[in-house]
Amino acid sequence: MRINGNTIFIPGATSGIGLALALRLQEVGNTVIVGGRRTELLERIAAEHPGIDTVRIDTTDKGSIAEAAGEVIASHPDLNVLVLMAGIMRVEDWGSPHEALAEAEATVTTNVLGPIRLIAAFLEHLKAQPDATILTVSSGLAFAPLRVTPTYNASKAAIHMFSETLRLQLAGSDVQVVELVPPSVQTDLMPGHADDPFAMPLDEYIDEVMGLLEAQPDATEILVERVKFLRFGEVRGDQAQVIATLNGTDAVVAAA
């Protein structure tokens, strides 16, 4: 993915990593369109950041995706980058399966069906553009499970494998598939997470991502250093240690 000169649509970018990335991408010379459900947030972003365009989209709703895709393509026919940022992270207790099921279904709808439907809505347009990119967003938890978020882990593993396979199918086209693999980052993805001292500061994360995008335009995965502990546990042969550390059962590492 080239670092500038793009027209980029980022659904799910009204806060957190999505908004921070949108602002940095605009700063380096891209046209950026931010999508989200809440019109008040979109209006605030447009007012506070001149040049950022906005569109209302609910990525859990097929009709909303189709409507927003038509609006974005009509307004920005040179759109060449789609960043699939929308996602939710819910705690589930499968000791109470009926309660857990509702959270699991919402997570799959947002984190798996949403990105797949967005790709379907934009892919034909992107295939007609030079230097097009689909940037998917998985997680370090796609590679090592956090005990309290089973469906989130599974949804991000699905996005990882979908990205790998879509890349194979689009080989030879002008559409690059790049997977952003965040570690834990200080955002409001879960209550209290923005102040979690063990999570990576948001600005530090975006700085490193932007540096990697610029230095590695042909990368298939964008991996900041902090996520490599989770990403490569199986490769290193220490996956059991990674899972224990992640879930707080390794007293020595947890205390460090």
Score class of each variant (00 low, 15 high):
A128D: 11
Q129P: 04
D131K: 01
A132H: 11
T133E: 08
T133Y: 12
I134R: 04
L135D: 10
T136Q: 02
S139V: 08
A144F: 05
A144P: 07
R147F: 08
V148C: 04
T149C: 00
T151W: 07
N153T: 13
I159C: 06
R167I: 06
L168Y: 09
L168N: 14
V178I: 13
E179M: 10
L180E: 05
P182N: 01
Q186W: 05
T187H: 12
L189A: 14
G192F: 07
H193A: 00
A194H: 11
D195R: 14
D196G: 09
L202W: 06
Y205Q: 07
I206K: 01
I206E: 13
D207W: 12
V209T: 05
G211P: 05
A215C: 06
A215G: 14
Q216L: 13
D218M: 07
E221G: 06
E221I: 06
I222Q: 08
E225D: 04
E225R: 11
R231H: 08
R231T: 13
V235W: 00
R236G: 02
D238P: 11
A240V: 00
A240P: 02
V242L: 05
T245C: 05
T245R: 12
L246A: 05
N247Q: 07
G248Q: 03
T249C: 10
D250R: 10
D250P: 02
V252I: 07
V252Q: 06
